[in-house]
Design a protein around this nucleic acid. Structure first.
Lengths: 392, 392
DNA sequence: TTCTGCCCGTGAACCGATTCACCGAGGAAT
DNA sequence: ATTCCTCGGTGAATCGGTTCACGGGCAGAA
């Protein structure tokens, strides 16, 4: 296995934009101005310039100004690679999220950034799109760049690569998934409880067969939400057969569309639908409507994540709300606190979700029509104390 | 001005999560395994290990395997900083987008990634949130890391810093904004035309006063869309006074809420509303409804971007569609092609938008109620050939 | 047998910043 | 006057890869 990705065969690509880069991209332009250029220009030594940059107090005012002027005149930008190579440190954190197009994750990312910026760390963002290989590629990139740590929403069930990463000195915090290993921190929301709430709600409305559009079992959230759904059905004395499961590859609107299509062709359709997330629900509702089915009369729908537009859909969507921003904040906090040789020990934070009931499940201010004061302030919320943190 | 961000005063922060990092975060763990460790372990020289990594064909099969085994046994990861320092090259591109939470930009990002991955480049993503300082910080970070180039949706009107960046050898491509300078590539959509379409549509429906929730004039898109709106009114023989403008700081749902609030208190409200983007429209519609106004009867609303959920809102939103994914693809393509000393010259690509008419402007299948086959397939599309590319 | 190539592999130089032992000068203390 | 500090500044060593001039060994040709 070649260690560096092979770039040789990009030319045989089927896409319209045929990739192929010039033989030698390297060494662009004349040469970056270096610290020694600045030193020469200012008539001082290398070390002095470095001191001006990093410990200005150790340099006399006049020298400092002279060096500063030289820096500006040459528009010198220190070479991050060299700095990092020598210093070994870096103020960057990487995050590999499942799907950057999902508002849930962008809100989490926002939370991460907000926490990191408190300590002047910066975030490098990447989206794995549920692809294990992509995730690995980005993790490797981050590690090569020497990030302080990574925040990951794993795309696969196997976490060994993350443990190895950690053993090599890279901080790892699992995002939106409780860590199965004690010494890797994690920040999650109780997905089992959230899904149970959602399905319990549907059952309480009289539904006896519940469709469930879920993602691959390699994604922990999917596993947990399924478990929660089953638990709720079990509590109600309904067997597992009451859950009509469909597995789709992508947790987005296209997945929802595919899921509903599959659900509708298969014999007796359920009367209610629980979707693994709101994007899936979005696609599901679009497709249901295209089939002439009305929501919630022909099919009640519940989503998950309560993304910002859930309350504003044609039929406002009942969904499970999670403390997204805080999730990111806390994850970044754990990462920073755990860093360094004397870092804090791993922690596992779990938040409690809450159910927000709207018209799509037919329980809210019923018969809502367009133009009504649906959603917004009128949401009915169910669940424990919002955003409860639990440590184990 | 200190060159490195000052981290000393993070402790006096008002946030709940008080930031403050341990004095010496640097030098984590024992020491990363280096190429010389591998060489020693495999009983070969440094250069040979490097050759195995970069030009495997120059190494005999037996040696190569021995080195590979050593690499795996020590779980060696090459130090990206050292590699880059010496080689000067890097296969990373940075992007600084206006708002990562806006689906428009995440779709653009997706397009960028898709194009980059053709040549095995990777993308580092960052969001400026319209803040010039944040943008500058990320650009600096990227430059220090020696990225091949950056894709930027500028947060401010002043582009000098981007020109300087380019003069230092970093490729720059403007995203979603036509470059005012010939030798900096750009990929954009004709915002003037798009906005003109939108407002022309409203005028054709009989509206004579159009509200316009816009962002700060430092953002080019805001300037262009305003110009388009004015042009359409002018064409219709209506003066500029027919445009009731409100400027909001943030181009998201909160901004829309603030905009509508301001619009409603100020004397005679317009009968139609053009929002600078769909997120703003989302917040605007939410707020209009909270005030008991119905859409489109009391107020017609048109957005911009046609994000994926626009067709699925309580009242499906009329919006201006742009070829988002392609926008990103082409921008990344220009960046890669322009790289290297023999790179292609700068290009300016401009796409044409199209108007998608839905119920929110009251022109689509009218009187749509919840549960109807609104949106989706029934969209009426206006505009030239979709996604026309123009070079100048 | 000697020469010419070729194939593998070697190790030193180098990229650009950080760090630290060291030094000269000037002031204070003895 | 001598010693001792402190302050400001110096420059060599170092981080971990990449590259390249060089050399040893071996096969084929003269």
């Amino acid at each position: 296995m070649a260690t560096t990705p092979d770039r040789a065969d990009a030319s045989s690509d089927p896409a319209r934009l045929t990739g192929s880069r010039p033989a030698d991209t390297r060494r662009r332009g004349p040469r970056r101005t270096s610290i020694s250029d600045v030193a020469r220009h200012a008539g001082v030594s290398l070390g002095t310039v470095s001191n001006v940059l990093n410990r200005p107090d150790r340099v006399s005012e006049t020298t400092r100004e002279r060096v500063q002027r030289a820096i500006e005149e040459l528009s010198f930008i220190p070479n991050g690679s060299a700095r990092q190579l020598r210093a070994g440190t870096i103020s960057t954190v990487g995050a590999v999220l499942l799907d950057i197009a999902n508002p849930f994750f962008t809100e989490v990312a926002r939370g991460i950034e907000d926490r990191l910026s408190l300590d002047d760390y910066t975030l490098m963002l990447a989206s794995s799109d549920g692809d294990v290989a992509r995730e690995a590629r980005y993790l490797r990139l981050f590690e090569e760049h020497g990030v302080l740590g990574v925040l990951v929403t794993p795309a696969g069930a196997d976490l060994d690569h993350l443990l190895e990463l950690r053993s090599r000195g890279v901080q790892v915090v699992l995002l939106d998934q409780t860590s199965p290993v004690a010494d890797v921190s994690s920040v999650a929301v109780d997905d089992v409880a959230g899904a149970a709430m959602a399905v319990r709600h549907l059952v309480s409305l009289g539904h006896r067969r519940v469709g469930f559009i879920n993602g691959p079992a390699t994604i922990q959230q999917c596993v947990d939400r399924r478990a929660g759904a089953l638990r709720a059905l079990d509590e109600a004395g309904l067997g597992a057969s009451a859950l009509v499961e469909v597995e789709v590859p992508a947790l987005n609107a296209d997945g929802g569309e595919a899921g509903v299509t599959e659900l509708l062709v298969g014999g007796t359709a359920p009367t209610a639908l629980f979707c693994v997330n709101d994007l899936t629900a979005l696609g599901a509702m679009r497709t249901l409507r295209a089939h002439g089915l009305s929501i919630p009369d022909d099919m009640a729908v519940v989503g998950y994540d309560d993304v910002n537009f859930a309350s504003m859909l044609t039929t406002p969507l009942t969904s499970v709300r999670q403390p997204t921003h805080r999730l990111g904040e806390v994850a970044a906090d754990l990462l920073l606190r755990g860093a360094g040789p004397d870092g804090a020990p791993a922690q596992h934070v779990q938040f409690q979700p809450e159910l927000v009931v709207r018209a799509s499940s037919g329980a809210a201010p019923s018969g809502t029509i367009a133009g009504d004061v649906a959603g917004a302030e009128g949401d009915e919320r169910v669940g424990g104390v919002p955003a409860t943190e639990t440590l184990r």
